[in-house]
Write a protein that binds this DNA or RNA. Structure first.
Length: 504
RNA sequence: GAGCCAUUAGCUCAGUCGGUAGAGCACCUGACUUUUAAUCAGGGUGUCGCUGGUUCGAGUCCAGCAUGGCUCACCA
């Protein structure tokens, strides 16, 4: 929509009305020869450095041995007292109090201090003391305006609560809400910890393409895009799997990638169209090894970032202490429903059991799909403590090796905690002939209307035909792991910029 | 995609039975040299999400739409 000239003018006048004071202050600074959007400022300390340093010192000690500091941050509050004033500035480590007075700064510079607005970014040079209330404070001897703030911050007491604004203007959320800042710092630490532990086990971090010509490695609808110069349709990747396995073929025996995948599906408290997966592949290992690796990895990350394996998630108390329960999908279904699918031989029989147990199924579902429906509808929600569910049916596992004893099932597991899936792993299918048959079965599902079934990937089969060692593979949903370890109920609270509808 | 809920000042929120829009913080003016949700005196800054409808009169009632949240569906 185009604004008419008078519309624009009116809006500007409104803005002038509301924020005239802040804009007027740009001139105040410029008249003094000060650029209100200044340059580099060398700090000597961060707020937490100072507080840590002087914590144990008495007021007298501090007065005798003055510590001079240069810090920078955003002015968050101010309490004027005529010829003196207190305020707080916020830097990346937190808040620290500052104190300015006219007899230290001089008339001119004190006027400058008084001209500051909350939200302005300033540099401060001075010495550290403790106030009458014992709060560590920087006595300002020199003040530098580093960046003028033209928009007012939310209220100091209630902060920013509006969920929509918090997501759309995450920067304001990060300024105002300490816990939000901490959650995202924690997210970074979780990923750092993950990298450290994988590196320690000899895994090589790699980067594979996000633009694919075939969406493979998972069952999901992709985002479609187009390359202009090559006039070629492309999709955004839905998984990391198939390229990482090509690298195993290539002899990189332990690889992992932490990367964004894109799935064209709805949003919810647990789903964002783009999210972060960690996938790793290790030659000569199998899905049992992956269980051990998974539980040790997550336990170690919890210890690194939380210092304990005992965590609360919402109302629930969860122990991440290893070893975790391992149970066959069929056995757990039997435990909870009395139906033992090991003894069920035909799809017909399975279908009757579904109907008699109130499990919703569709006409095109085969034996394995029905077993999976039993699991999802009757079992999944009941799992609280970490549990490896293994032995998924072959129909829903087109990239996993069949179980040697019962080829209706695969050497695959998923990790469930508090009713949610956190990891998916298997002994990777490395038989190219079997792989081709699995893809063909997927194509038949596609014809029956499952638009999330796998496509044939000839290039991937060719890679297997060169020979892929027996390999264990694992995928972990990083966002969900962060939710668990930071006790956040919504995936949007662990994504800095969750997908939102655009505003006109 | 469906159901429920929300949308009022920069922010956090009140707003009765349908009768000319309110508070706190922030902001502006003034006082105040160790305050900390500083205090004291004065000042209300608004497209009540949008569009229609009912009505003498709508922030309030009705319909549609928009955005967001929650639940469900979808997501093996």
């Amino acid at each position: 929509m185009e604004h008419t000239e008078s519309d624009t003018q009116m809006q500007e006048e409104n803005m002038e009305d509301l924020f005239a004071a802040r804009r007027a202050k740009l001139n105040f600074w410029r008249e003094r020869g000060i650029d209100p959007f200044g340059g580099k400022f060398e700090i000597t300390h961060r707020s937490s450095d100072i507080i840590r340093k002087v914590e144990s010192m008495s007021r007298e000690e501090l007065d005798e041995h003055k510590i001079y500091v240069k810090i920078a941050g955003r002015l968050m509050s101010r309490r004027g007292h005529g010829k003196a004033a207190f305020g707080h500035i916020l830097d990346s480590d937190g808040m620290i109090q500052i104190y300015a007075r006219i007899d230290t700064l001089g008339e001119d510079h004190y006027q400058e201090f008084k001209a500051l607005d909350i939200g302005d970014i300033i540099g401060v040079e001075g010495f550290v003391f403790k106030s009458n209330h014992g709060e560590v404070t920087v006595h300002v001897e020199h003040l530098t305006l580093l960046a003028k703030s033209l928009l007012p911050l939310p209220e100091k007491w209630h902060g920013l609560r509006d969920v929509e604004t918090r997501y759309r203007r995450r920067y304001v959320d990060l300024i105002m809400n300490t816990d939000v800042r901490e959650t995202f710092i924690m997210r970074s630490r979780i990923i750092q910890s993950m990298r450290r532990h994988l590196e320690a086990q000899g895994f090589l971090e790699v980067e594979t393409p996000t633009l694919h010509s075939i969406a493979g490695g998972a069952a999901a609808r992709p985002f479609r895009t187009h390359h202009n110069a090559l006039d070629m349709p492309l999709v955004m990747r839905i998984a990391l799997e198939l390229h990482l396995k090509r690298l195993i073929v290539g002899g990189l025996e332990r690889v992992y990638e932490i990367g964004r995948v894109y799935r064209n599906e709805g949003v919810s408290t647990r789903h964002n169209p783009e999210f972060t997966m960690m996938e790793l592949y290790a030659a000569y290992m199998d899905f049992q090894d992956m269980m051990k690796l998974t539980e040790e990895l997550i336990e170690q990350i919890a210890l690194d970032v939380r210092g304990t394996t005992e965590i609360s998630y919402g109302e629930r108390q969860i122990s991440l202490r290893t070893p975790w329960r391992r149970v066959h999908m069929v056995d757990l279904i039997a435990e909870l429903t009395g139906v033992n699918f090991f003894t069920v031989q035909t799809t017909e029989e399975a279908r009757k059991l579904a109907i008699s147990h109130g499990v919703a199924i569709t006409d095109t579902m085969e034996f394995g799909h029905i077993v999976n429906e039993f699991f999802e509808q009757k079992v999944e929600d009941t799992i609280v403590d970490p549990t490896f569910i293994y032995g998924h049916p072959v129909e829903i596992s087109p990239l996993a090796k069949k179980n040697a004893e019962d080829p209706r099932f695969t050497d695959r597991f998923e990790l469930f905690i508090a009713g949610r899936e956190y990891a998916n792993a298997f002994s990777e299918l490395n038989d190219p002939i079997d792989q081709r048959e699995r893809f063909e079965a997927q194509l038949r599902e596609r014809e029956l209307g499952n638009d999330e079934a796998h496509e044939m990937d000839e290039d991937f089969i060719m890679a297997l035909e060169y020979g892929m060692p027996p390999t264990g593979g694992l995928g972990i949903g990083v966002d969900r792991l962060v939710m668990l370890l930071t006790n956040q109920p919504s995936i949007r609270d662990v994504l800095l910029f969750p997908l939102m509808r655009s505003v006109e």
